[in-house]
Simulated assay, not measured.
Amino acid sequence: MEVTIQIESKADHKTIRHNGNTIHYFVSGNEHGKTVVFLHPAFGDHRCFDGQTDYFSANYQVLTVDMLGHGLTGVGKSKDKISATAAHVAKILESENRVRAHIAGVSLGALLAQDFALKYPNKVLSLTALGGYNINRKQPEVAKSQGLEMLKWFIMMIFSMNAFRRYTANVSAINEAEQIRLYESAKNFTRKSFTVMSGLGRLIADRNIERRYPLLILSGEKDNELALKMAKQWHENDSGSEFHIIANAGHCANMDNAEAFNGILMNFITTRE
């Protein structure tokens, strides 16, 4: 018997229009506080941060976004790709009359959070990356691993999107309830959604940049070996960054161990304001 979870959100559901696309996002929390923006992993949606929304809403305005091809946003009529996320976040902040924000991303969201920081550094109060790697260095080892994983995805999708969704949910979290949450959020990710995922490799390049914002790098202790290696290497190459491994958690550690993730992130952003 399949188990499902019901999501009840106290957040205000809003949209912006950008280049022919309607981007859905959710606002909750303290309108007088500073803003925290959460960007979800591939195949998920804003529900991946259900464990963060209430916690941070007491002191902060919380923005969660359904990125292009995901959740309620889906695939628009324009030729935009998910790499347009930086522009979408900038427009959302403008719509909410917010000049700067703390940006936190998970997995794919961690890459797009970095891209936002590259394009809009003056809008970034801090950057948090969970389950990601440094996009300012070419990553041949990661590219090879991701290529093999994508081949596996495509083979699965040919036969069953549900099998694909269940597989990605199970490798992204170790907690059964969070695997279910990821599976439910992935139901809005379709074969057509893959059309917006191309071109992500172009975000990665060797760059010499001067980081002007605090950087927090996080990994789940039960994430795969390569992900842990890349996170540690990123921290070692950026001596000003802060690095934590979250216990009892897999790739989406904010879901598997929300209490530990929330505490680390809250301490990080409050001590740097």
Rank of each mutant, 00 (worst) to 15 (best):
L216K: 02
D223P: 12
S198I: 09
G240I: 06
G71R: 03
M266H: 14
R98K: 13
R212E: 10
L130Q: 14
N188P: 00
W153M: 00
M67E: 10
A42N: 01
Y167P: 04
R165G: 12
L108Y: 08
N248K: 15
Q179V: 07
V106Q: 05
G240D: 12
E96Y: 08
I246P: 11
P140W: 08
L127D: 02
R137T: 12
H24E: 08
S241H: 01
C48D: 10
N257H: 02
G33E: 00
S95W: 02
S107N: 09
N162F: 01
T271K: 15
F38Q: 07
V142A: 04
F243T: 02
E149K: 13
M67H: 05
F43I: 14
M266C: 07
S83R: 11
L226K: 12
G74P: 06
F49I: 11
Y213M: 01
L200M: 12
Y183G: 03
E225N: 11
I103W: 04
A143M: 11
A87Q: 15
V27S: 14
R272M: 00
F268E: 10
N136W: 04
L130I: 15
H70D: 08
N30S: 09
N257S: 02
L228N: 15
S28V: 05
L130M: 15
A227R: 15
I158A: 09
R47I: 05
I174R: 11
I23A: 08
A87P: 13
R17E: 13
L151R: 10
F164D: 01
A90V: 07
E210L: 13
M266Y: 12
H18W: 08
T168K: 03
L108N: 08
A177C: 11
K119G: 00
A253C: 13
T73Y: 09
E8H: 11
T85H: 04
N237E: 14
A87F: 13
D256K: 09
G33K: 03
A42R: 00
N224R: 14
R137D: 08
K138I: 05
F159D: 09
E221L: 05
F56W: 06
G201V: 01
I174Y: 05
K14R: 15
A104N: 11
W153C: 00
V99S: 15
K138R: 10
C252M: 10
K222V: 12
N188E: 03
D54N: 13
P121G: 00
E273V: 12
A110T: 11
N21C: 10
K152I: 00
K34H: 09
Q233L: 07
D12E: 15
A231R: 10
A104C: 14
A84F: 08
A247W: 07
F56K: 06
N97C: 05
R211N: 06
L151P: 02
Y167D: 00
E273G: 13
L72D: 13
K144I: 02
T128H: 07
H102S: 07
I264G: 04
N224D: 15
L218I: 13
H235L: 00
L218Q: 13
P140S: 06
L228C: 08
R137K: 14
N170G: 03
R100H: 11
F243A: 02
K77Y: 05
G71Y: 01
R212H: 10
Y55M: 00
V196S: 01
I16E: 09
T22W: 04
S193C: 10
L226V: 08
T53R: 14
L226S: 10
F159T: 12
H244S: 12
K232E: 02
